[in-house]
Structures are given as structure tokens and as C-alpha cells.
Simulated scan of single mutants.
Amino acid sequence: MTNLNGNIVANTDASLSVSNRGYAYGDAVFETIRAINGKIMFWEDHYFRLMASMRIMRMEIPSSFSPEFVEQEIKDLLEANGLSDAPARVRFSVFRKEGGFYSPQTNDVGYVITAEELSSPFYLMNEDFYEVELFKDHYVNSGLLSTVKTNNKAVNVLGSIYAKENDYSNCLLLNENKSVIEALNGNLFLVKDKVIKTPPLTDGCLKGILRGKILEIVKKLPDYTLVEESISPFELQKADEMFITNVIVGIQPIHKYRKKEFGTAVAKELLTKLNVLARLS
């Protein structure tokens, strides 16, 4: 079942026009959300990021889009799919209504919500060997738009194809200044001695929900120093650990980059604290 503009319909009936602006121009934003037993994790963070994304894209936010309304729309869909007592992945997409070409005829929006079951209610540590490489064919431009989850994901798609063709688990993306900003599907963290480092939003990395939660956790740990600074590709092989974060997998440790192999001790420590934080959200 799918929620299409407030109506829960069978997936086969949830059709969008070929003139839909999300399809035609990538004129859409979305949130990927994790729900556990009908409870939406980090809901306030997701809601305000969605509203901020719509404002940046100059979309008209409907007066009905209160936190309570949007949350209930998601919960109704979870119930319709039999996922009220299960872990689930939810995608909430908002698109500008059709009309016009590059210049839209309206800033009014429509939305579609989908949900599917996840395998575990908790964040688990993936111990499978995980190797990454730089994706250098295309760059992400630093700036405000790169921090927003829009449908314009050509670099991520091409990077994913490159990773698959070359047997890498993931790729790391660069901005126009050749700084490493993130992975294809999440934010990047480096650990060197007792310093945990991640790129700043001004470099063009996504303003990830889990990125924010890891920052909260690390700031409370007296044994570690948190640094938000640009990361040079030359730093990667000097790190003790590297890991990727996103709201679905939690923390994904990187085991190898080129000739360097990495530990996972800090990632495991943070994952434990993240699961505690998730239960309290």
C-alpha cells in the first residue's frame, strides 16, 4: 500500500503522471525514515529537515503539514501495510505539482509515502568486509543545495555503478575543491588517535540525521575530540578508522581503502550509544 496525497491505495494504483516534476526535472525532496513498532525514530529532526528542504526549494508548505499531521500520515501507512509492530523503512517524497518547464506554474506540492519492512529493529554492526574507493569521474558542488535530499542524484547513481563494476562496497565523493565529503549513501567519519573528524556542511555533504546524532554523542565523550573540517584524500590512509552513517544502517565501518585496512573499535562503541539514543527518541 502507498499513501498518495493522503489517500492510501494499492501500489498498482499509485500512479504518477509522466509530467510529474519530480520525474521530469528532479523537482522533489524526500526523507528516508526508520520506524520501529510504529514509532518514528528521530521524528522531530526528520520533520524539520523536510520543512527546511521545501523552503530551500521554494515549495509552498501546505498549512496542513503540521508535525502531527505528517507523522499520522506515516503511521496510517505503516498500519495499512501491517508494519505497526515491525521495523520499517519509510520514504516520504514531496514534489512540486506539474505545470511549466524549468519555470514552474505553481509552487504547490503533492506527496507520496512508501514503506517496506526492515530485518532488525536495532542497529547492528555489519562485519562483512567493506572496501571503498574514491569516485573521481564527477564532483559534488559545495553549497546549500548539496545538503538537501532532492531527486537529483545522478552522481550517486553513477558512483554506485562504478562501485559495482569494480567490486567496491561503496565510493567516497569529492567536491570541486577535491575534498572528500561523504559516501554514496551516507556521511563519512574518520578516527585518528582520539580525534573524530567529519566534513563540514559547507563542503557540500548531506545534512544527515545520523550525522547529527553522532555529533551529539561524540561531544559528550570526554576521551574524544570532535572536528568538523575539510578532509583531504591524503588523510584517508592515515586514519585508524573510517565509518559511514545513515538512518537505515546506522554505522557502517570501512575495512579497507586502497592498501590501508582499518579497525572498528570506535564504530562499535558509538553504535552501542546510538542504539540507546534511538530507543529514547
Rank of each mutant, 00 (worst) to 15 (best):
N3K: 10
G6S: 11
A10I: 07
T12D: 15
L16V: 14
Y25H: 12
V29E: 01
F30Y: 14
R34I: 08
I36N: 14
N37W: 06
W43S: 06
E44Q: 15
H46A: 09
F48Y: 14
L50S: 04
R55I: 13
R55C: 10
P62L: 07
P67H: 08
K75F: 10
D76F: 11
G82C: 03
E98T: 09
G100F: 04
S103Q: 14
A115C: 10
S120P: 07
D128T: 12
E131C: 08
H138K: 12
H138I: 07
N141G: 11
A163M: 03
S169R: 03
C171F: 02
L173G: 00
N175M: 09
N177R: 15
N185Y: 11
G186C: 07
L190P: 02
V195F: 03
I196W: 09
P199F: 00
P200H: 06
P200K: 04
D203G: 08
L206N: 00
K207D: 13
G208R: 00
I209W: 00
R211P: 05
R211D: 05
G212N: 11
K220L: 12
D223K: 12
T225F: 08
L236R: 00
K238M: 08
A239C: 06
M242A: 10
F243I: 13
T245S: 10
Y257F: 15
F262E: 05
K268C: 14
K268H: 15
E269V: 13
K273E: 11
L274R: 10
L277H: 10
